[in-house]
Amino acid sequence: MALLEARKLYARYGESDVLHGIDLEVAQGSIVALLGANGSGKTTTLRALTGGVRTSGNVLFDDREIAGLPPEAVARLGIAHVPEGRGTLGSFTVRENLSMGAYTIKDGKRSKARYEKLVGYFPWLVDRREQPAGLLSGGEQQMLAIARALMMEPRVILLDEPSLGLAPIIVKRIFEILRTINREDGVTIVIAEQDAAAALALADTAYVLEVGRVAISGPSADLAGNEQLRKSYLGY
């Protein structure tokens, strides 16, 4: 069953349409990759799913219509969005960033338990607790953004280009952590990525976007295994 679904989703900034009727299904517990070149609509798709842009069409979460809800309401339903630029609260400490992640969780004990669990994934967080998040390296900020999103106890987490500007070895580590939280904690993941090879290796299903439309979609193994598709749509 689809946990998150878009049907004929259109999105516009000002006068121009950016998405032209996207259909998307994210199965419960799966990892879905959104691929495509710069400007193909990956970021806008994530924003359209979370109320960050004006849309028409349907967005269903747990079979409930959520299109038109503002981002804060979408977040409260259990959809965590790590936006473009990671949304780091730069002048806040690492601890304050994490605490803001748990903003919607009223039960302090649950947040504390959650924090203890996250420290297992990101042990370095402990030593950097009192540092301003803006002083972390790009990779650390990306990990902090993921950790902060996980503090929300989300059912699905949407990531916008987590590999952007990071060294390959850091990207590898981040993707390993994503795989772990998907498998062990059952968090559904939607990941928009330019690094198609890495994303296909991680995801169960992939959608390739071209100028605001789904050009092709299917199991990521099929896409990765078909050289012709790969060359014409993903350029590698």
Binding site: P70, P71, E72, A75, H81, P83, L89, M100, M152
Partner: peptide, 10 residues
């Protein structure tokens, strides 16, 4: 950080 706060449910 209004935009970043909104995606955290603020």
């Amino acid at each position: 950080y209004p935009e970043s706060s909104r995606v955290l449910g603020v």
